[in-house]
């Protein structure tokens, strides 16, 4: 029970990181970006390239990796952020300018996802890759709850990223502009928000967080071309559960999905685990159709 709770929180932290980008594109760009999961994959593989040059570093303290992997994650975050923006310039911006329907964007995203995922296959192949070959033993944090030091570190880092992002959205001018866009693009534009700049920033932040989520997923324990794709459904369930466009919603949604997946196995067969996020979602949407933190449209 306690172990399942701990597992749920750890899974939830990574889902939350990825779901933030999904919720932003849903809120600000107004479409479901199914290519988002591929940003996780690209982030993870970019970090792999850096690690290949710098090495994962000597394990620091109880962790299985050194500062090199963190540096790699940072490089990956920056590059993936720009990659996300590049995909927007190549595909989504063109579609927006032609007045495409949101659904057209969704399918363009599907197409882009196929291309991005199989480019990884072409470059790196299908084989699993590893940042580090170390295996950690879990420490008993609470009676009956074992966690890996890496995972505790990741949880801390993910929470820190979320807090920084929250502060940015709450207090910085650009952050406020982003929130205004999510509320009402037309109104924001009238108030002098530079739409292009906000869109660009949204992609960069979404991509960067996706890269972190990708690297963290790759740490436990392997990378393969479908690493992001396998998380896609959880990301969307989390974003919609929390209410689109809401940072707090994505974070809470992420943790709920993580907990739901892990706790549900106490009562049902693992064969049905994949349905859990959706059943949770269905229940919440019936009670609150706009999601937990969503505004009533």
């Amino acid at each position: 029970m306690i172990q399942a709770l701990a597992d749920g929180i750890l899974t939830g932290a990574i889902i939350a990181l990825g779901a933030i980008g999904v919720t932003f594109t849903l809120g600000i760009m107004r479409f479901a970006n199914f290519a988002h999961s591929e940003l996780l994959t690209w982030g993870a593989y970019i970090a792999l390239v850096v690690v290949a040059f710098a090495g994962p570093g000597t394990p620091t303290g109880p962790l299985s990796f050194g500062w090199q992997l963190l540096a790699a994650a940072l490089v990956a975050a920056v590059l993936t952020g720009f990659a996300a923006w590049a995909v927007d310039v190549l595909v989504f911006r063109r579609l927006r300018r032609r007045g495409a329907l949101p659904l057209t964007m969704v399918f363009a995203a599907f197409g882009a996802a196929l291309v991005m995922r199989h480019l990884i296959v072409l470059i790196w192949g299908h084989e699993s890759r590893y940042y580090t070959r170390e295996l950690q033993l879990a420490v008993e944090l609470l009676p009956g709850a074992r966690m890996l030091p890496d995972q505790i570190f990741i949880l801390g880092l993910a929470l820190a990223a979320m807090i920084v992002l929250h502060a940015f959205l709450a207090w910085s001018r650009t952050g406020i502009a982003m929130r205004a866009m999510a509320e009402s693009p037309a109104l924001a534009q009238v108030c002098g928000v530079e739409v292009d700049a906000v869109v660009r920033l949204t992609w960069i932040i979404s991509g960067a967080l996706a890269a972190f989520a990708g690297v963290f997923t790759g740490l436990t324990p392997q990378l393969h071309p479908e690493i992001g794709f396998n998380l896609l459904l959880s990301l969307f369930a989390a974003a919609i559960l929390g209410g689109t466009g809401s940072l707090a919603g994505a974070v809470v949604g992420g943790f709920l999905v993580g907990l739901g997946e892990n706790l549900s196995l106490l009562v049902i067969s693992p064969g049905y685990k994949g349905a859990m996020p959706f059943l949770l979602l269905l229940v919440i949407l019936i009670v609150r159709p706009q999601g937990i933190f969503g505004d009533k449209a």
Binding site: Q3, A4, D7, L10, T11, I14, T217, T220, E226, I227, N230, L231, S234, E261, N262, L265, L266, S269, P270, G271, K273, G274
Partner: peptide
Amino acid sequence: PYNDNQPSYRAEVTK
């Protein structure tokens, strides 16, 4: 039982 292609199997392992 486990369904393949999941990012993590902690829940199954815990069970």
